[in-house]
Design a binder for these strands. Structure first.
Ligand SMILES: [Zn+2]
Ligand SMILES: [Zn+2]
Length: 245
DNA sequence: CTTATCGGACTGTCAAGTAT
DNA sequence: TACTTGACAGTCCGATAAGA
């Protein structure tokens, strides 16, 4: 997942091709990711789909537990130091930087086109960008993003409204993992491994039919619990951040 | 042989920094 | 304000372990 513990790997991976003209092929080759994998696929590190009982869950009779995974809020206020400007000389700009798109190092639009998705917008319920709710972007001072959008909302903090949210009033995290200035980078995959002591491939909770997996019914409960805890921690993190800022 | 697990390469998004 | 850069946080490929 995100094992950027030591250092960051080259953002733009080395092209296996020697010619810049093959760039289009490259984007065609690029792997396409769904915006939000379901929790089952996420845990299994397997390919998901945009439809909601995703194919994999359907295959394993998990359609009922096929829900979008929670996405953490991106941390803010990180200092970055001076940028090393990439020389865009007038000589041959455009040829200088590969694949250059408008935003970021990857070319989402180009990729979409390459994938047969002619529209500049991904075939995805745009109103739920990557995060589907409860992130008051406007309040955060944001302003960009497509003008046609209903109301850009990001960062679904708590995907399961049916769960009561843990109050951020202290009482949490005996590990003391993250506090104020957290420096614990690798707390993602590691954490996942840590709690992944139960079978990951969620078997059909209760009435197993296929040879899917040896699950124990309480899987969904465990999942929910885990989600809850994670959400709580994240929430607290966020509060700390905004506080210390 | 089939299925599950998981390390890590890769993708995508967005905030910080810089140019205009 | 618009654009660029860099890094966080996510997906999922592919190697390999485990099980039938
Ligand atoms: Zn899925
Ligand atoms: Zn699913």
């Amino acid at each position: 997942m995100m094992d950027h513990n030591t250092e960051v790997q080259p953002h733009v991976h080395p092209l296996p091709y020697e010619h810049a003209q093959m760039i289009h092929e490259v984007s065609a080759i690029k792997r396409k990711q769904v915006k939000n994998a379901c929790t089952n696929c996420q845990k299994a590190c397997k390919k998901c789909a945009d439809e909601r009982p995703c194919p994999r869950c359907v295959k394993y009779n998990l359609a009922d537990s096929c829900v979008n995974s929670v996405r953490k809020e991106r941390k803010k206020g990180i200092k970055r130091g001076p940028y090393k400007r990439r020389v865009r000389s007038q000589g041959d700009e455009g040829a200088t930087d590969e694949g250059n798109s408008t935003q970021g190092s990857s070319a989402p639009v180009a990729a979409n086109v390459a994938y047969g998705n002619i529209s500049p917008f991904p075939a995805y319920p745009a109103h739920l960008n990557q995060y589907q709710s409860a992130y008051d972007y406007q309040a955060m001072g944001g302003q960009k993003h497509m003008a046609g959008m209903p109301a850009p909302q990001y960062y679904q903090t708590f995907p399961y409204p049916q769960q009561a949210m843990m109050p951020p009033t202290g009482a949490n995290d005996p590990t003391g993992d993250q506090q104020g200035n957290e420096s614990a980078k690798p707390k993602t995959k590691k954490a996942k491994k840590a709690k992944a002591k139960q079978p990951i491939t969620p078997g059909p909770s209760s009435s197993n039919s296929t040879s899917a997996s040896p699950d124990k019914g309480e899987e969904s409960n465990m999942t929910k619990l885990a989600q809850l805890v994670t959400a709580a921690l994240d929430n607290e993190n966020t509060m700390n951040n905004s506080k210390s800022e």
